[in-house]
Amino acid sequence: MEIERVALLARIKLAEGEKELFSKQLGSILQYIDKLNELDTKEVEPTSHVLSMKNIFREDRTIPSLSKDQALLNAPDSAGDFYRVPKIIE
């Protein structure tokens, strides 16, 4: 089922009842978006950005970083100098 795939990609666990509910809801969203396909866009350049800006750069200069403690402060889990996560199985 498409909804299961989407949930897997987003790492969301769905209860059985939710699958059906969200399937319906997503379906109606997609249907709504599909309406755009009725427009003829052959002559329109694809837009990736709504602003007509380009080439916004910064110079290659370093600025002070967060301290280690600050950086780790919002992490759900940390140990010593590191973020700690469930063991990554290789």
Binding site: T62, I63, S65, L66, S67, A71, L72
Partner: peptide
């Protein structure tokens, strides 16, 4: 000298998690 999208240093071999923002 700095990262791709921020001003953190890219120096190799620093103490862990000291070059982030």
């Amino acid at each position: 000298d700095s990262k791709m999208f921020c001003g953190c240093s890219v120096k190799f071999g620093s103490e862990p998690n000291t070059q982030t923002c």
